[in-house]
Protein backbone atom coordinates (compact mmCIF):
# COMPACT_ATOMS: atom_id res chain seq x y z
CA UNK A 1 0.00 0.00 0.00
CA UNK A 2 2.83 2.37 0.96
CA UNK A 3 4.55 1.65 -2.38
CA UNK A 4 1.33 2.32 -4.26
CA UNK A 5 0.98 5.67 -2.50
CA UNK A 6 4.53 6.73 -3.22
CA UNK A 7 4.05 5.71 -6.87
CA UNK A 8 0.92 7.81 -7.16
CA UNK A 9 2.54 10.80 -5.45
CA UNK A 10 5.62 10.53 -7.68
CA UNK A 11 3.43 10.21 -10.77
CA UNK A 12 1.52 13.33 -9.73
CA UNK A 13 4.70 15.35 -9.09
CA UNK A 14 6.31 14.38 -12.42
CA UNK A 15 3.07 15.03 -14.33
CA UNK A 16 2.73 18.51 -12.80
CA UNK A 17 6.42 19.19 -13.54
CA UNK A 18 6.04 18.16 -17.21
CA UNK A 19 2.81 20.20 -17.52
CA UNK A 20 4.60 23.30 -16.14
CA UNK A 21 7.52 22.68 -18.50
CA UNK A 22 5.14 22.49 -21.45
CA UNK A 23 3.32 25.65 -20.33
CA UNK A 24 6.61 27.56 -19.93
CA UNK A 25 7.63 26.38 -23.43
CA UNK A 26 4.40 27.83 -24.85
CA UNK A 27 4.90 31.13 -23.00
CA UNK A 28 8.53 31.31 -24.15
CA UNK A 29 7.41 31.35 -27.80
CA UNK A 30 6.14 34.93 -27.32
CA UNK A 31 9.76 36.00 -27.24
CA UNK A 32 9.29 39.77 -27.15
CA UNK A 33 7.18 39.73 -23.99
CA UNK A 34 8.58 40.47 -20.52
CA UNK A 35 7.39 37.08 -19.31
CA UNK A 36 9.40 35.27 -21.99
CA UNK A 37 12.45 37.36 -21.09
CA UNK A 38 11.93 36.52 -17.40
CA UNK A 39 11.75 32.81 -18.28
CA UNK A 40 14.94 32.96 -20.36
CA UNK A 41 16.99 35.06 -17.93
CA UNK A 42 15.78 33.99 -14.49
CA UNK A 43 14.36 30.47 -14.81
CA UNK A 44 16.10 28.76 -17.69
CA UNK A 45 19.62 28.24 -16.28
CA UNK A 46 20.24 25.09 -18.37
CA UNK A 47 18.59 26.27 -21.62
CA UNK A 48 15.83 23.68 -21.23
CA UNK A 49 12.95 25.87 -22.34
CA UNK A 50 13.14 26.01 -26.12
CA UNK A 51 12.23 28.72 -28.57
CA UNK A 52 10.92 26.85 -31.59
CA UNK A 53 10.70 29.68 -34.16
CA UNK A 54 13.35 28.26 -36.51
CA UNK A 55 14.39 30.69 -39.28
CA UNK A 56 11.35 32.89 -38.58
CA UNK A 57 10.06 35.51 -38.62
CA UNK A 58 13.34 36.89 -40.04
CA UNK A 59 15.35 34.18 -41.80
CA UNK A 60 19.13 34.65 -41.56
CA UNK A 61 19.93 35.75 -45.10
CA UNK A 62 23.40 37.17 -44.63
CA UNK A 63 26.80 35.78 -43.75
CA UNK A 64 28.70 37.43 -40.96
CA UNK A 65 32.37 38.30 -41.28
CA UNK A 66 34.75 39.05 -38.45
CA UNK A 67 37.86 41.03 -39.39
CA UNK A 68 40.65 42.57 -37.35
CA UNK A 69 43.67 44.80 -37.80
CA UNK A 70 46.52 46.06 -35.59
CA UNK A 71 47.77 49.54 -34.91
CA UNK A 72 51.53 49.30 -35.44
CA UNK A 73 52.37 52.99 -34.88
CA UNK A 74 50.13 56.03 -34.50
CA UNK A 75 49.87 56.32 -38.27
CA UNK A 76 50.56 52.79 -39.43
CA UNK A 77 48.02 49.98 -39.45
CA UNK A 78 48.20 46.39 -40.61
CA UNK A 79 45.92 45.04 -43.37
CA UNK A 80 42.50 43.74 -42.35
CA UNK A 81 42.56 39.97 -41.74
CA UNK A 82 39.42 37.85 -41.69
CA UNK A 83 38.72 35.11 -39.16
CA UNK A 84 37.49 32.03 -40.98
CA UNK A 85 33.86 31.63 -39.89
CA UNK A 86 31.89 30.72 -42.99
CA UNK A 87 33.65 27.65 -44.31
CA UNK A 88 31.90 25.70 -47.07
CA UNK A 89 30.58 22.29 -46.07
CA UNK A 90 31.84 18.93 -47.30
CA UNK A 91 29.79 16.14 -48.92
CA UNK A 92 29.55 14.30 -45.56
CA UNK A 93 28.21 17.29 -43.63
CA UNK A 94 24.71 15.75 -43.71
CA UNK A 95 26.02 13.16 -41.24
CA UNK A 96 29.27 14.49 -39.79
CA UNK A 97 29.51 18.25 -39.43
CA UNK A 98 31.81 19.37 -36.60
CA UNK A 99 32.43 22.70 -38.35
CA UNK A 100 28.90 23.79 -37.60
CA UNK A 101 29.81 24.39 -33.95
CA UNK A 102 32.33 27.20 -34.60
CA UNK A 103 30.02 28.78 -37.14
CA UNK A 104 26.99 28.56 -34.85
CA UNK A 105 28.90 30.00 -31.87
CA UNK A 106 30.11 33.01 -33.83
CA UNK A 107 26.76 33.41 -35.53
CA UNK A 108 24.99 33.37 -32.11
CA UNK A 109 27.50 35.79 -30.62
CA UNK A 110 27.29 38.19 -33.55
CA UNK A 111 23.49 38.04 -33.63
CA UNK A 112 23.41 38.68 -29.90
CA UNK A 113 25.75 41.63 -30.37
CA UNK A 114 23.77 43.00 -33.29
CA UNK A 115 20.49 42.69 -31.42
CA UNK A 116 21.73 44.65 -28.41
CA UNK A 117 23.28 47.55 -30.40
CA UNK A 118 19.92 49.44 -30.71
CA UNK A 119 19.31 49.07 -26.95
CA UNK A 120 22.70 50.57 -26.12
CA UNK A 121 22.19 53.38 -28.65
CA UNK A 122 18.76 54.12 -27.18
CA UNK A 123 19.97 54.06 -23.57
CA UNK A 124 23.22 56.00 -23.88
CA UNK A 125 23.18 57.59 -27.34
CA UNK A 126 26.27 55.62 -28.34
CA UNK A 127 27.64 52.08 -28.19
CA UNK A 128 30.51 52.69 -25.76
CA UNK A 129 29.04 50.47 -23.05
CA UNK A 130 28.63 47.66 -25.56
CA UNK A 131 32.25 46.67 -24.92
CA UNK A 132 31.25 45.43 -21.46
CA UNK A 133 28.68 43.04 -22.90
CA UNK A 134 29.30 39.29 -23.01
CA UNK A 135 29.13 38.90 -26.82
CA UNK A 136 31.55 41.81 -27.34
CA UNK A 137 34.04 40.24 -24.90
CA UNK A 138 33.78 36.86 -26.64
CA UNK A 139 34.46 38.45 -30.05
CA UNK A 140 37.35 40.50 -28.65
CA UNK A 141 38.78 37.41 -26.95
CA UNK A 142 38.52 35.47 -30.23
CA UNK A 143 40.33 38.11 -32.31
CA UNK A 144 42.92 38.74 -29.59
CA UNK A 145 44.03 35.10 -29.89
CA UNK A 146 44.93 35.53 -33.57
CA UNK A 147 48.58 35.92 -34.53
CA UNK A 148 50.16 39.22 -33.47
CA UNK A 149 52.98 41.07 -35.25
CA UNK A 150 54.51 42.29 -31.98
CA UNK A 151 53.96 41.36 -28.30
CA UNK A 152 52.02 44.49 -27.34
CA UNK A 153 49.67 45.59 -30.04
CA UNK A 154 46.43 47.50 -30.22
CA UNK A 155 43.81 45.56 -32.11
CA UNK A 156 40.55 46.67 -33.67
CA UNK A 157 37.82 44.38 -34.99
CA UNK A 158 35.08 44.88 -37.51
CA UNK A 159 31.84 42.97 -37.96
CA UNK A 160 30.44 42.97 -41.48
CA UNK A 161 27.75 41.13 -43.39
CA UNK A 162 27.44 39.96 -46.99
CA UNK A 163 24.61 38.44 -48.97
CA UNK A 164 26.31 35.07 -49.51
CA UNK A 165 26.40 33.45 -52.96
CA UNK A 166 23.93 35.90 -54.49
CA UNK A 167 26.25 38.90 -53.98
CA UNK A 168 23.31 41.18 -54.68
CA UNK A 169 24.29 43.72 -52.01
CA UNK A 170 27.74 45.10 -51.22
CA UNK A 171 29.27 44.10 -47.87
CA UNK A 172 27.81 46.16 -45.02
CA UNK A 173 29.48 47.29 -41.81
CA UNK A 174 27.76 46.22 -38.57
CA UNK A 175 30.22 47.33 -35.92
CA UNK A 176 33.70 48.83 -35.79
CA UNK A 177 35.37 48.50 -32.41
CA UNK A 178 37.85 50.85 -30.80
CA UNK A 179 41.51 49.73 -30.56
CA UNK A 180 42.09 47.42 -27.61
CA UNK A 181 45.49 46.70 -26.11
CA UNK A 182 45.99 42.93 -26.20
Amino acid sequence: MAKLNSTVIYEFIVTVFLACWFLLTILNQFKDTKLAEFIRVKIDVFALIPLWTFFAPRPGKTDYHLLYRDKITEEQYSEWCEMDITEERTFWSWFWNPEKRDKKILSDVVQSLVSCIPDYRKATGNTNLLMFSMPYIIVLHAVSQCKKQSPNVYRQFMLAETSGYQETNPPALILLSVFHQI
Binding site: G60, K61, T86, E88, S163, Y165
Partner: peptide, 15 residues
Protein backbone atom coordinates in the same frame (compact mmCIF):
# COMPACT_ATOMS: atom_id res chain seq x y z
CA UNK B 1 11.98 34.61 -50.81
CA UNK B 2 13.03 33.19 -47.43
CA UNK B 3 14.38 29.79 -48.53
CA UNK B 4 16.21 31.30 -51.52
CA UNK B 5 17.84 33.84 -49.19
CA UNK B 6 18.79 31.29 -46.53
CA UNK B 7 20.15 28.84 -49.12
CA UNK B 8 22.26 31.59 -50.64
CA UNK B 9 24.23 32.08 -47.40
CA UNK B 10 27.47 30.20 -46.86
CA UNK B 11 26.41 29.56 -43.25
CA UNK B 12 23.24 27.56 -43.97
CA UNK B 13 23.06 27.27 -47.73
CA UNK B 14 24.92 25.79 -50.65
CA UNK B 15 26.04 26.95 -54.06
Amino acid sequence: TAIRDVFSTKTYGSK
